[in-house]
Computed example of a mutant assay.
Amino acid sequence: MPSVATELAPQELRVLVAVAHEGGFTAAAASLGLTQSAVSHAVRGCERKLGAVLFERGRGGATPTPAGERVVGHARRILRLLELLPAEARATESARIAGPLRIAAFRSVAAQLLPAVLTRLAERHPQLTPEVRIVREIGRGTAGEVADGRADLGLATLDADTAAVPGLLAAPLFTESYALAHPAGHPDPRSLPLVDWDENCGSYTRSWWGRQDWIPSATINVADDTVVLSLAAQGVGMAIMPMLTLANPPQGLAVTDLGPRPPTRQVGYVTTPELARTAAVRAAIRELRSVPLPPGLTRAR
């Protein structure tokens, strides 16, 4: 058992999270209703107990060190579990699921899949209040939001980067194929310039992409997949896009398959081992596994 002298109390965890969120001791103190000296004293106490510097102090405020980022992530997750305890106790007694459910999702899956999931959750669990945040699937993406304690459940593209995030549970929901998006009526869309976006072509499509000698380097790279579709519809070029993004194409855009073995990506959910056992997360996963899928998606077995 760890020594009491090294254990952090919930209030100390709240101070660490507030300092990271507010970017400084003074703002954190105001948000917590404490004095600046009390916050500073609490942070120093945490650093002494853990044997690590958690924040870089400067005139501009306080920035978490790498150790601080890890500790604050764990602090958020612990505080979330403490917050869920009353709801978990009531769910066990009455089978009712209530309270917030924080979901992080990338744009296309949030737009095309989540509405049906949230509708079914509302019908079955009217006291549950989902909170959805759209997160770009770049770097640590939605998995990083879960790891850092900002989300209970993430809808993520499952690849090597996701698997590398420590301490998370990940499971596939469906496989999504890609197709060619291009101006309607163009006689040879593969000859057009390539329009791409930052979140496209992760490790799940890179091997297929590298075998194609007809795909040029991107002439335009944008930050949003809907902009890609708009540009392709207006004749600027062609794009290779996942099917959820192509579910409601703009006027003037045509979609053509990429042959019998198109590139695919796997989409699934990510959570923590502790949150995976909570009633709200279990209910959301059940709906994600049973909701009807749009065309171009194959449910994971």
Score class of each variant (00 low, 15 high):
P2A: 15
P2V: 15
P2F: 13
V4K: 14
T6N: 08
T6H: 12
L8F: 04
E12K: 00
L16Y: 02
L16W: 01
V17C: 09
A20F: 06
H21C: 11
G24R: 08
G24S: 04
T26L: 13
A27K: 14
A28N: 08
A29S: 05
L32A: 05
G33A: 06
V39I: 10
H41Q: 15
H41F: 14
R44L: 11
C46I: 06
E47F: 07
V53L: 12
L54S: 01
L54D: 00
E56K: 08
R57M: 02
R59Y: 11
G61K: 11
A62N: 00
P66Q: 07
G68W: 10
V71I: 14
G73S: 12
H74V: 13
I78N: 07
I78W: 10
P86I: 10
P86K: 09
P86S: 04
A89H: 11
A89I: 15
A89Y: 13
E93K: 12
E93F: 14
E93M: 14
E93G: 09
S94T: 15
S94P: 09
G99T: 14
P100Y: 05
A105P: 09
A111L: 14
Q112M: 03
L114D: 05
R120Y: 01
A122I: 06
R124S: 10
H125P: 14
H125V: 06
P126K: 07
Q127H: 15
V132I: 09
I138F: 13
V146H: 00
A151S: 11
D152P: 04
A164W: 01
A164M: 01
A164G: 05
V165A: 03
P166T: 11
L168C: 07
L168E: 03
L169G: 09
L173R: 04
L173W: 08
F174N: 01
E176S: 03
S177N: 11
H182T: 06
P183M: 09
A184H: 13
G185T: 12
P187D: 12
L194E: 03
D196N: 10
W197V: 15
E199D: 07
G202Q: 01
T205R: 12
S207G: 08
W208M: 05
W209N: 01
R211H: 11
I215A: 00
P216T: 02
P216A: 01
S217G: 14
A218H: 02
A218Y: 04
A218R: 02
N221W: 04
T226D: 13
V228Q: 02
S230P: 07
A232C: 15
A233S: 05
V236G: 04
M241K: 01
M241W: 10
M243N: 07
T245K: 00
A247P: 00
P249G: 00
Q251M: 09
G252F: 09
A254S: 05
V255W: 10
G259K: 03
P263T: 01
Q266N: 07
V267Y: 02
Y269A: 03
Y269P: 05
V270L: 02
T272F: 03
T272R: 01
T278F: 09
T278M: 05
A279G: 13
A280S: 12
E287M: 04
E287F: 08
A300C: 06
A300F: 11
